[in-house]
Every structure is written in structure tokens, then in C-alpha cells.
Design a protein around this nucleic acid. Sequence first.
DNA 1: AATCCGTCCAACCGCAATGCA
DNA 2: TTGCATTGCGGTTGGACGGAT
Length: 227
Amino acid sequence: MVRTPCCDKNGLKKGSWTQEEDKKLIAYVTRYGHWNWRLLPKYAGLARCGKSCRLRWLNYLRPDVKRGNFSDEEEETIVRLHGKLGNRWSTIAAELPGRTDNEIKNHWHTVLKKRFQQNSIGKEAVISESSETLSENYSDLNTTSDTSGSASAAAATATNDESYDGLSGLDAYTEPLSVDFWTEPYLVDNSYVPPESEPVYFSPMYEVEIWNQNELFLQECEGLFQW
DNA sequence: AATCCGTCCAACCGCAATGCA
DNA sequence: TTGCATTGCGGTTGGACGGAT
């Protein structure tokens, strides 16, 4: 979606994720969990590095990721915690269920920071800078939030709704899947023979019958992914 | 209609922290 | 205790998109 797709020196794909890749990742993590991000893409039939898979799952595909605009309460929390903690986005994210550190970081840089800067400029004309603490600036934001930020956020959301956002692709669980999807991981990976030290029972190859007769699994997934 | 420009945000990168043999 | 592997975090990038010109 964003970066130009390319392959690195190891032949691993980079750039935006396709619907098919999302399906594979969701299907694998839902069933087996993320017991080892490094080995996961190999077992899941993905030509991605584990780091990329982890990021995609945590920031976008997890069933509990909240999409859409930030509420006033959420923005207030972000501003307050940022004033207290600084750029500790993961800690801030922990206080906002369903929001990821990446999402919060982006929202801060695109909306809240500007609001904060505008607010600071406005206040400089009235209050001497020396007497004003950073936290006061932040707390001020809570009562002066205008609608411009929300409007732009809403516009961005609308944009996302129209394009492929990965989540619409989760119709994977409501629309019939092709046989290819469930068999492709084996086709991709069948050249890989895990060493004895690796837990082969986490591999789809270990449960071929389940992956081929996936009706029950699909029903389980439908219950988990109701975006 | 075409082009420019600013905004948004998914994804990458590098480094720090943690786990484990 | 040490060194390697893995995970987690924060900064940054750059393409898509929409509005302005």
C-alpha cells in the first residue's frame, strides 16, 4: 500500500501486504499463536520476515485492534500521558485498549502535536514562557480541542474505508476460500525440512487434515474476527 | 483537466531489552 | 558470566490520497 514492493537479498517480500498474505497470517496465528515470529512466516507460507509479520499482526490484524477516529477521551489520555511519559508510545498504548503504539504515534505526529504547537504559539502572546510548564500546555489542550483534527481524521478514515484496508479482506471468513489458500502454504514450504529441534507440530504440515477440512476452523475464526 | 502540495499512516529500520543455553 | 537469538520499541520513510491552484 505504501512502500514499493520489492525483495530483499534473501528473497523475502517487503512493502505493503496483500489480502492473501493477511489471510495466511490471520489463519496461522489464530490457530497456532505466535510462538516464534522468526519461524512463523516459514510455517505460514509467507515470504516475509518475522518482524514484518509481527508488526502486521500487532498493528493491523489483531481482532482487538480498534479502528477509526480517536475519541476525545482517547486524545485527552494521549496528551496527558505524553506530557507525563514522553515518547513512550507502548506505555501510552497500554492505557488505550485496542489502540496500537504505532497508531498513537502517528496520531500524535499528525494531529495532536500540531494542536499542541498552535496552542503554545497562542499562549506565548499572553503568558510568559518561563512561567509555563510543559504539562500545563498539555492540559490546556484538553479544553481547546477544535474540530479540525477530528475532521481530518474522519477524512482519513473515510479514505481507508474505500481502499483495501486488510480488514475487509477478513471476509476471508465469510466468503468461501479457494482450496489454493489452504494448500498453498504446503506448496510453498514443502522444501523446508525443520530440524529436530523445531516443534514440527506447530507446522500446518502436521495437521494437513485440519487445514484441508477447515470448516470448523473457519467457524472458530468467524467468532474471533467480527470487525 | 492537469499539476502541485500538504497530510496521513502503513511499514521499514536500527537499536535496546530480554531470554536462554 | 557471556554471547547469541529473539522480541519490542521508537524514529523515520515514502507512496496514496485529497484539496488547492
